Amino acid sequence: MLRIAVQAKGRLFEETMTLLSESDIKLSPSKRTLLVQSSNFPLEVLFLRDDDIPQSVATGIADLGIVGENEFVEKDEDAQIIKRLGFSKCRLALAIPKDIDYPGVSWFNGKKIATSYPVILENYLKKNEVKAEIHVITGSVEVAPGIGLSDAIFDIVSSGSTLVSNRLKEVELVMKSEAVLIAHNELSEEKKEILNELLFRLNAVETAQDKKYVLMNAPSDRVDEIIQVLPGMKSPTIMPLAQEGWCSVHTVLDQKRFWEIIGKLKALGAEGILVLPIEKMIL
């Protein structure tokens, strides 16, 4: 049985639960229970505060954890990242009042910076040979300059709207972050086998993201041209239709180029185009 620690609430909780559900790991929907066991996979989920997850994995209380990379780096615990999950993306950045002219990172010398991430900030300042006072606070870091608590802030930025509403501007990008799957350094062989099966499922879900399964009818004499247009996973499937001179073409398309490719297919005579979502893809 593997135990995985996940955030008890918030956006990361929602996206983690969606990922596990798409991996066909069935869990009770209750948020009040500290520990929930899957009914169809040897996995139990431990719900914790996000900043407690790295330590719980490092000490073996949990075998795995899903946590923001920013929290993992900040806590600097003895565990390992085994997979980047691609959601809950954000960045850690330095921001100052928007009316100040910013000449470069040397501006922070002698300044007071408010943050909830002192370890990451201290490492960045040392790397850039900047001597500043770090003021550690929790909660609404972005209000600190406005009330005279600091000259600048170092905090998470997603859309940047919170900075704008507090008359701040981002001046230095320090770190990009996303949700990561971390693991205890000394898993048993039995737990490694379960982890490998979990990774297999997660990879299948990830591969299917932004992919569409496309079926179309096409003139047989244009098939070679159509194949040249299709950037499918491998060679598309071609099957003859009952109507002479026509065939059915099946392939997989990436959402990013979907409409561009569909337009080219129609120009080559493809019709009856059917587009289906892909739940999982196993390579």
Rank of each mutant, 00 (worst) to 15 (best):
H184Q: 05
S188L: 05
K212H: 10
R167H: 13
Q228N: 15
L198H: 06
M216P: 05
I227Y: 02
N196V: 09
L198M: 12
S165L: 13
Q209P: 00
T207N: 11
Q228L: 12
L198A: 04
Q209I: 08
L163K: 05
N203V: 12
E186A: 11
P219T: 11
E197C: 03
N203L: 13
I226V: 13
N185G: 12
R222P: 01
V164W: 01
I226F: 01
A179Q: 10
E178I: 11
T162K: 14
V171R: 08
M216S: 10
N196S: 15
R222H: 12
L198I: 08
A179E: 09
V205D: 03
L168R: 02
Q228D: 14
A218H: 04
R222S: 11
M175K: 14
L195Q: 03
V214N: 04
Y213R: 08
S177W: 00
N185A: 06
T207D: 09
V223D: 05
E178H: 09
E170M: 15
L202D: 00
N217C: 02
I182R: 03
E186I: 03
N166L: 06
L173Q: 12
E172I: 15
D221A: 03
L195A: 01
H184T: 00
I182G: 02
A208S: 12
Q209N: 10
M175C: 04
T162N: 06
M175Q: 14
D210T: 13
I226E: 06
V174R: 05
K212L: 13
T207V: 12
E197H: 10
E170W: 05
E206M: 12
V205M: 00
T162R: 14
F200R: 14
L181G: 06
K212T: 02
R167L: 12
L163I: 09
K191N: 03
V180Y: 02
K212E: 04
T162G: 02
Q228I: 02
F200I: 00
K169N: 06
V223W: 01
S165G: 01
D221N: 13
M216H: 02
E190Q: 11
I226P: 02
S220C: 01
E170K: 15
E186H: 13
E172R: 10
N217P: 00
K169R: 14
E170V: 11
I194D: 09
V164I: 15
V171N: 07
N203I: 14
M175R: 14
E225S: 13
D221I: 02
I194V: 15
S165I: 08
L181E: 06
V205F: 04
K211H: 03
L173K: 14
Q209D: 04
E197N: 13
L187A: 05
N185K: 15
A183R: 08
V223K: 00
E197P: 05
D221K: 10
L173H: 10
S220R: 06
R222Y: 04
V223L: 07
E186V: 07
L163V: 08
V164C: 00
E190P: 03
L187H: 06
L215C: 11
